[in-house]
Amino acid sequence: MGHLPVDVRASLRFFAFYLANGTLDVDLLDGIDYRPALFQYGSALEMVFAIYGNVLEVDEDGEVLNDGEAQYRAAQWIRAYCDPGYEAEPPFQAWETELHGP
Rank of each mutant, 00 (worst) to 15 (best):
F39H: 03
E46N: 13
L38D: 11
M47C: 09
F17P: 00
F49S: 01
V26D: 10
D30M: 09
Q40L: 14
R35P: 03
L28C: 03
S43P: 08
F39M: 10
T23F: 02
D27R: 14
L38G: 09
V26E: 15
D30I: 02
L24S: 02
Y18D: 08
G31K: 11
A50R: 05
G31I: 09
A50Q: 06
M47V: 14
P36K: 02
D30F: 12
Y18S: 03
A20I: 02
A37L: 14
G42D: 06
L28F: 10
I51L: 09
R35C: 02
V48T: 08
P36A: 12
Q40F: 04
I51V: 15
Y18K: 13
G42V: 08
L24Q: 04
N21I: 13
D27V: 12
E46H: 11
R35S: 07
A50H: 07
A16G: 14
D25Y: 00
D25I: 01
P36V: 13
Q40V: 12
A16S: 14
A16T: 13
G31S: 12
A44G: 07
L38T: 11
L19W: 00
A50T: 11
A44P: 01
L29C: 03
F49T: 01
Y41D: 15
A44E: 13
A44K: 15
D33S: 07
A37C: 13
D25E: 13
L24T: 08
L45M: 14
A50E: 10
L24W: 05
G42P: 00
G31L: 12
I51Q: 01
F39E: 15
Y34L: 06
G42L: 09
Y34T: 08
E46S: 14
G22C: 09
T23L: 08
L28M: 11
V48C: 14
L38F: 10
A44C: 05
F17Q: 14
T23E: 15
I32N: 04
N21M: 05
I32M: 05
L38Y: 08
L29A: 07
G42E: 10
E46M: 11
D33M: 04
L28H: 07
G42S: 10
D27S: 12
L19P: 08
T23D: 05
S43I: 05
D27E: 13
Y41F: 10
I51S: 05
D27I: 06
Y41S: 05
L29G: 05
